[in-house]
């Protein structure tokens, strides 16, 4: 029987629990994200999401599989390997900057650097390696940094994303900032990333289907047929922000690094399959 006292207890509990529900931790976020897409596309196995739109668009998938017979990103992988093997002027090389000589490490990026208090993406780590060895960093849009990133993904193919959020308030804050960016509406079209890639995933936008966010970062950098070149994940972020008619941020800006941190954490447990090919 409901008494005034039990009602009061109920509302006190509600007051405590509601804010907790609104600020779930990263692992709860990831589980909910994964479950959402599983429910939304019950016929799509979880592991398939690393293929982006080709996981849910059968027609486009057939074309993509044909393209994959002669992958257009191979040149970038070869160039990346060559650059990776070139020693710096001081005799050291990229191998000296990464665990395991850089082989099979892509699944751990982005990672949070607790000393510097910042998110370190694969490209950021490569350029940091150059700076530490007195080499000029590459421009973020340069062919070289994208080729290196493509090679790092290639030699990590099949490894499983295991993004960590260290026990550091700054790391959690970076994750939360990325999450906030992802769900915030922006620009003249008043759209959030999630409006297209969660709520409307699978829907048409003009002649194409919108991809699901789950697995989004797994296949970058990608060769874009319509551009005839390789692009980074941040270049794609830039394009999306511009497309909703907001002023885009620079590649490797804090905003995009945090966004990549959140988005890649959402893909933990999925495999690295970059570089990729997209329309």
């Amino acid at each position: 029987m409901l008494t005034p006292r039990s009602l009061r207890r109920f509302f006190v509990c509600l007051t405590i629990l509601l804010p907790l529900a609104a600020s779930a931790g990263p692992e709860e976020d990831r589980a909910a994200f994964s479950a959402y897409f599983n429910k939304r596309f019950p016929d799509v196995p979880l592991a398939e999401y690393v293929n982006g739109i080709y996981a849910i668009d059968e027609q486009a998938r057939k074309q993509w599989l044909e393209i994959e017979e002669f992958p257009p990103y191979e040149f970038a992988v070869e160039q990346g390997e060559e650059l990776f093997r070139q020693p710096f002027a001081n005799g050291k090389s990229y191998r000296d900057c990464f665990e395991n000589g850089g082989i099979g490490v892509r699944q751990n990026f982005p990672r949070f650097d607790t000393e510097k208090g910042e998110v370190v993406t694969m490209e950021w780590a490569l350029n940091r390696c150059r700076s530490q060895n007195n080499e000029a960093p590459y421009a973020w849009k340069s062919e070289e940094i994208i080729a290196l990133s493509a090679y790092m993904a290639w030699i990590s193919r099949g490894t499983i994303f295991a993004i960590e959020i260290p026990d550091d308030p700054a790391a959690l804050a970076a994750y939360e900032a990325g999450k906030r960016f992802y769900y915030s509406k922006r620009g003249q079209l008043n759209l959030a990333c999630s409006d297209c890639h969660v709520k409307s995933a699978g829907a048409f936008v003009r002649a194409d289907h919108l991809s699901a966010s789950l697995g989004h970062p797994s296949h970058f950098p990608v060769y874009r047929s319509k551009l005839g070149k390789m692009i980074s994940l941040h270049s794609r972020f830039y394009g999306c922000v511009r497309d909703v008619r907001a002023r885009p941020f620079e590649e490797q800006s804090e905003e995009y690094r945090n966004l990549e941190y959140f988005l890649t954490y959402m893909s933990n447990g999925l495999e690295v399959n970059g570089p990729g090919a997209r329309k």
């Binding site: 529900a21 609104a22 779930a24 976020d29 909910a32 994200f33 959402y36 999450k179 906030r180 769900y183 915030s184 509406k185 922006r186 003249q188 008043n190 959030a192 999630s194 409006d195 969660v198 709520k199």
Partner: peptide, 23 residues
């Protein structure tokens, strides 16, 4: 006017984004 709307949007989104989080 665009800038005023952008500011309004940002202030609104300071809380509104939380309602879109997948749970």
């Amino acid at each position: 006017r665009q800038s005023e709307l952008a500011v309004e949007q940002a202030l609104r989104e300071a809380e509104a984004w939380k309602r879109r989080v997948v749970r």
